[in-house]
Design a binder for these strands. Sequence first.
DNA 1: TCTGGGGTCCTAGGACCC
DNA 2: TCTGGGGTCCTAGGACCC
Length: 420
Amino acid sequence: MYALVDCNNFYASCERVFQPELEGRPVIVLSNNDGCVVARSQEAKDVGIGMGEPLFKCRERIRRHRIAVRSSNYALYEDMSRRVVQTIMRFIPDLEIYSIDEVFLDLDPLAGRDLETLCRTARATVRRWTGIPVSVGLGPTRTLAKLANRIAKRSPDADGVCTFPTDETHRTRVLESVAIEDVWGIGRRWAKRLHRIGIHTALDMSRAPATEIRRNFNIVAMHTALELRGVPCGELETDPPLRQTLVRSRSFGSMVSEWDDLSEAIASHAIRAAEKLRHENARAGHLTVFIHTNRFRDELPQYSGSGGCELLPPTSTTPVILARALAIGRRLWRAGFQYKKAGVMLSEITRGPTQGGLFEQRDERRDDRLMNTMDRINLKMGSGTLRPAASSFTPRRWTMNQDHRSPRFTTRWDELPRTR
DNA sequence: TCTGGGGTCCTAGGACCC
DNA sequence: TCTGGGGTCCTAGGACCC
């Protein structure tokens, strides 16, 4: 038996925890650069604000419905997410962190207990300790736990927790009521193709012959079909595997043309990517840099380029990654274009002992000590206190717009919430 | 004027090996 | 007329997820 705990309207709920005046009001949270809507409170959904909608297309509705607008505040959301997980762990320790606002729980070690009651207790405790409302769905597979979670969210009788029904009639009725495009793992493209072969609901999918799904789609879709039938495919990942890629990229606040500006953006991404890599105690064996112009401005000349290099030996040393990233970026840059975005990707990520480079001259242990010292100073004195001068120290054209960010209530001493 | 960022997995096809 | 069998590795592209 699995459970899925999903935070309701997570980013909007985080904003409300420390700004209770937002309670009952429609709230939306924007993507980086204040471009699109990425989270909505229930009230905002009710007045028709769509997921992913560009901000400039909903200005009028924002004014009309007095919608509260916030820039994304990941320092806050990540910290709140961590608190939610810690709380759940007190009740159900075997869990997989699936995303910033979802965890899967393995309930088998708790067999014999009243699982739904346990989940209700966990849910109430999360609300009390963190202020975040969550919904819980229980089921024999992760796909069915996801479905049960949907019901937990929508049906008032469920009161936030729902177990996928076991009796045949009820089970059939539920599966029949779920459109195929609402099943976890079925996106728009596949839904279209499934409709064409007569599969319209979760029930249809659960009854389709697995071999046919395998032949027409792939093994992932077949697993979905089996899971809808109650056959689990795949285990929970309770200790997370090493990531494969680490990307840092941003659209610019406004477009830039000059290499001096572009290089600062690339530098800042390289620095932050290396920092994150060290935080995870890992090294990367490959580096990719990419830049591109504004794809929405088709009247402007378009260009995009990417290039990479091996990092041998694998490294997390900022000066190494930074110098390589800038060298690649300089080769990619062409005069006469207005760039909108740049990014850095680290891959071939490893942990533990690494194969050294035969001709490598650097003293890696010295590098590690230096990075360690820099990270400790930044942890103590604040992120970015000590950093390479290649990134800028003042806002520039390329730095992102964030006009509505709330204080980082839980991670900055100078932004702690105050009573009024 | 204004349009996000960060991930994973699978498959097909080509190059290459013995 | 008929042209082996069994592999690996890499890449690009296409899905999907939050």
